[in-house]
């Protein structure tokens, strides 16, 4: 499960017609409900901008789950043992399930599944930039579970308290299932780090390649994240991007040390006064480039989704035809 604070430039672009009916009084009552920690449910009145923000965030989250099956699926047939293979299969199946929970949550806001899938396949929707990086070795499967899922969990735990009920409930289910993902990844890393010099080098290489992209998963720095404030006021978000990133770094540095691996950041240092690990500067130009489609695997990932959709079309057609055929006599008998 991989939520990411992507750029939300059009969140506050006024949809003047629909927002015209939003009197200050109504907006104030809505805000009061949110502040009283009441959950907003699908049929409740909500500001258009709140609805739009949620549709985009939840669907991007869903797309990320679905696309995220690609990098890991790459290693299922080459897993080094049956135990690892079974775990990886179960994990990838979970990602698919998480995508489905999230699509269902987005659909409660009045957008159809078909429309959401279409947005992904035509490249109009975004997904987490992390999945546009390639999985070059088996150690990458360890690093993804440990770091990518670790970062995702940091992001998702606060989302369990999101003001929108269906999203919060989906996240609770996801978080329950997710902790095995991170543990299986770390176990792979431990095994490699206790292995031969070549295995340790493979683990280090994976950490070197994934560390910075994982830090980018938390989204742009707070100073540049223009719509973070509104999402915080609506209690969609509970922590800022930088706040979550810091929590992740603090939790992860000691885990890397236990493995005997070096974090690829010469500026990394512990700030005694603040009690935090401070990283060097993050290359945000790379983040924007990958998000805009310039990552190593962007094209491959979307092509894989389009192919899957196309190859499955006959199954969906057959299912619909079968259902129609069997529904007809039942109606006649009734």
């Amino acid at each position: 499960m991989y939520s990411q604070a992507l750029d939300q430039r059009d969140v506050q672009r006024a949809d003047s017609q629909r927002e015209a009916g939003e009197s200050p009084d109504r907006l104030a009552r809505f805000q009061a409900r949110v502040e009283a920690e009441e959950k907003i449910e699908p049929n409740d009145w909500m500001p258009e901008a709140y609805r739009r923000t949620l549709v985009r965030q939840i669907s991007q989250h869903a797309h990320s789950e679905i696309v995220g099956m690609g990098p890991e699926g790459n290693w299922i047939t080459r897993a080094p043992s049956l135990r690892r293979k079974a775990a990886l299969l179960a994990k990838v199946q979970d990602e698919c399930g998480h995508g489905v929970y999230l699509y269902a949550a987005a659909e409660t806001l009045g957008v159809s599944r078909e429309e959401l899938v279409d947005q992904l396949l035509t490249g109009r929707a975004k997904y987490s930039s992390i999945f546009n990086y390639p999985t070059l070795s088996w150690a990458d499967i360890g690093a993804i579970g440990w770091l990518v899922d670790g970062a995702a969990i940091m992001n998702q735990i606060p989302l369990c308290r999101c003001s929108y009920g269906p999203y919060a409930r989906a996240m609770i289910r996801v978080c329950k299932e997710e902790s095995f993902h991170q543990r299986q990844g770390y176990e792979i890393m431990v095994t490699l780090c206790r292995g031969t010099a070549a295995q340790r080098a493979m683990a280090q290489d994976a950490l070197d390649r994934w560390w910075w992209p994982v830090l980018m998963m938390f989204g742009p720095p707070d100073a540049e994240s223009q719509h973070s404030d509104q999402s915080m006021r609506w209690k969609i978000k509970r922590f800022t991007n930088d706040g979550l990133r810091q929590k992740f770094v603090d939790a992860t540095v000691p885990q890397a040390r236990y493995l005997g691996l070096a974090i690829p950041d010469p500026d990394l240092r512990f700030d005694e006064a603040a009690g935090h690990w401070l990283t060097g500067p993050i290359d945000w130009a790379e983040f924007r480039r990958v998000l805009a489609g310039g990552g190593v695997c962007n094209r491959q990932r979307l092509e894989a989704r389009r192919r899957a959709q196309q190859d499955g079309a006959w199954v969906r057609d057959a299912a619909r035809a079968y259902a129609a055929k069997h529904a007809a006599p039942a109606r006649e008998a009734a």
Binding site: V100, Y101, A104, E107, R113, R169, A170, R173, R316, A319, R320, Y322, A323, H326, A327
Partner: peptide, 11 residues
């Protein structure tokens, strides 16, 4: 528990 898309009840 949630919702699901399917062509018929069995699916």
């Amino acid at each position: 528990a949630g919702s699901i898309h399917a062509a018929d009840a069995e699916m």
